[in-house]
Design a protein around this nucleic acid. Sequence first.
DNA 1: TGAGAACAATTTTTT
DNA 2: ATTGTTCTCA
Length: 720
Amino acid sequence: MIDLTGLNDQQKEAVLTTDGPLLILAGAGSGKTRVLTYRIGYLLDSGLSKPSSILAVTFTNKAAEEMKSRVRELLMSSDLSSLVDEVRWVGTFHSICVKILKQYGGAIGIDSNFTIVDTQDQQSFIKIALDNCGLSSKEFNPKSILAHISSAKSNLIDPGEYQKNAVEYFHSVVAKIYSEYQGLLKKNNSLDFDDLIFTTVKLLKEHHKVLENLQNNFKYIMVDEYQDTNHSQYVLISLLANKYRNICCVGDDDQSIYAFRGANISNILNFEKDYPDSKVIKLEQNYRSTKKILQASYSVISKNVKRKDKKLWTQNEEGDDVVIYKSYDEVDEANWVVSKIKEMRDRSVKLSSIAVLYRTNSQSRSIEESFLKSAIPYRIVGGLRFYERKEIKDIIAYLRFVYNPNDVTSMIRVVNVPRRGIGDKSLEKALALSNSLGVSFGEMLLSQESFVGIPDKVLEFGLLYKDLVVNLSKMCLKDYIEFVIERTGYLKMLDDGSLESPMRIENLKELITVGSKYSTGTAKQNLGDFLEEVSLLEGVGEQRSDRQNEDCVTLMTIHSSKGLEFDIVFLVGMEENLFPHSNAIISESEMEEERRLAYVAITRAKKKLFMTCVHQRRYFGKIQRNSVSRFITDINPSIVKIIDFYDSDIENEEVSVISDKEESQFSKKFILKPGQKVRHSYFGVGVVIKSDFESVTIDFGGDIGNKDLILEYAKLELLD
DNA sequence: TGAGAACAATTTTTT
DNA sequence: ATTGTTCTCA
Ligand SMILES: Nc1ncnc2c1ncn2[C@@H]1O[C@H](COP(=O)(O)OP(=O)(O)OP(=O)(O)O)[C@@H](O)[C@H]1O
């Protein structure tokens, strides 16, 4: 039995409103995901639906994972554990579309063993496309072209239509490349991320049978984080829901943070127009955070002008002040965070209840280094992604070529890795041969005896390929991956005693671990599923067995933290130009998105929130100074406690906190004249060069030289 | 063909 | 600052 007593009245209503269109519009931590989870549980428990008739989608892997695990937990504790494995249609938009395309894609000429190309592959294809069109990739930035194509695809615009709409010269170039690019993908039996959705929509629109089939199957559809859907995803959902109209969308317009990749808030704002018979439920009680954290989040989000005001309340306790640490540089910042975490660990706080969040992936570097030194276990989500690492991509390329003898792209990637003396010339010759004979490159290698004119070195590679193919059905996937790494000479190549080699070998071991999940059946049977999992980037690298269950701190971008919650959150790099990011500051709408992002970040915290900013930070190897983020100064000072870096060496930092307004007010009154001698507690004695109301430049002489300080925080002592 | 030099890009966020 | 990409020459 599903126990609904853990829900408030509105939540209960949302769970029990099973039929007809339903929109749940609610702020952070108000239990939206909880409602979805219980709704799934209730649908199953009441017998209203079979597990396979429920479709629940969201946008990020992390959020999908969260939803899956919450559903599993609920079912396990409600005597419904037998159904857990049957709830199959819970996942990201992309993974759902892959499932649909694998099954029905044939109708529009999609081979069921298609590969999904990642960003790097996409860029190579664009470069080739440019080349084929006689255009230079110097003149036309491949990234920019890709961005245009991607946005076209999320709006369901195909190359032909794009061409028609093109006004500027650049657009017509994009149109040409777009068309060429699609041709290349097709030839390689590949789809990119945007294609997964676009193609599925096309399939549903063009093949009524398939659409009907799926419409009949998905009796209940639920979408989490609906504010993040783009046009193509919106159309997809509308199509699927059009029969039963039992569609439940959940979201929060204040948490829309993916507009940069085409997400459209009007999808959620227009829900009531799309479904005039819909019911709208608002949830206003926050169950996650303390009063102070909630207040901080409100003072940030309420500054957005293009926003429907909604206010959350909570019965949770007042909680502690938001602690702000102003550090010297990113190393100091990281060390401070780690030292705080150490203190907490010593007070037996669970590390898994702690998260460090940042705006950009690059910030994880300094934090990670500090963690490594301190030996505190941590886990980085996303970032320099596992699957993007060269060694992983290389082995995957071998596997793909084995799986699909047509996959020339993968073959080209590894044919000479490690070095086999196969250069452009030999390769071109061999490729031309297979092309002219109309056989796949793989087939040609396998029956090489029957072909003349293959270069010697390529023949040798062919023997290796043959061996790989033959062994595919002889062992399980885990052993097979190991075999490939060994047999191709890849391991030997890596093991060259260089600095990175142990790390790379470690990564390959991790890949083998991912493969070990497929323990039943041969590699031949599982390779397809494995490759699909890997290309959907579903948390590879986090599945490492030794890390999975270990109690460790989570490091991730704010974007990937959406939908999650932690007792303790550290928000690092709270500086102007970093967060809000410099690229966003010029545009009003992007600025609002940054602010929503800050709102998401703050509302991840349940009990304690720390924010840090630095005095100076290395950026492209250069030192940059930025002022404190507006998202810090927007918070009501009465719930904030500030700690400055030069005090932190002193034993008890709590004592030296400047929290009274009087004190900071007082220091603000100083207007320093050039030539004034001052003493700074960190840099020592110096001479003022120039000063205004807020900041001061001081020459400390020697190695330190000129420093720009913020008057308010640099507690300066005047000397005569 | 491969090694090394010269050069360019990288750091906004995800699938 | 670091890493990857392209160019040049032996
Ligand atoms: N009625 C309730 N009673 C007790 N706890 C609740 C209740 N509703 C939600 N919670 C708790 O509040 C927290 C936030 O819930 P949930 O993650 O579902 O919110 P959300 O609205 O999805 O948040 P977000 O918008 O940030 O994703 C969870 O820890 C959940 O267990």
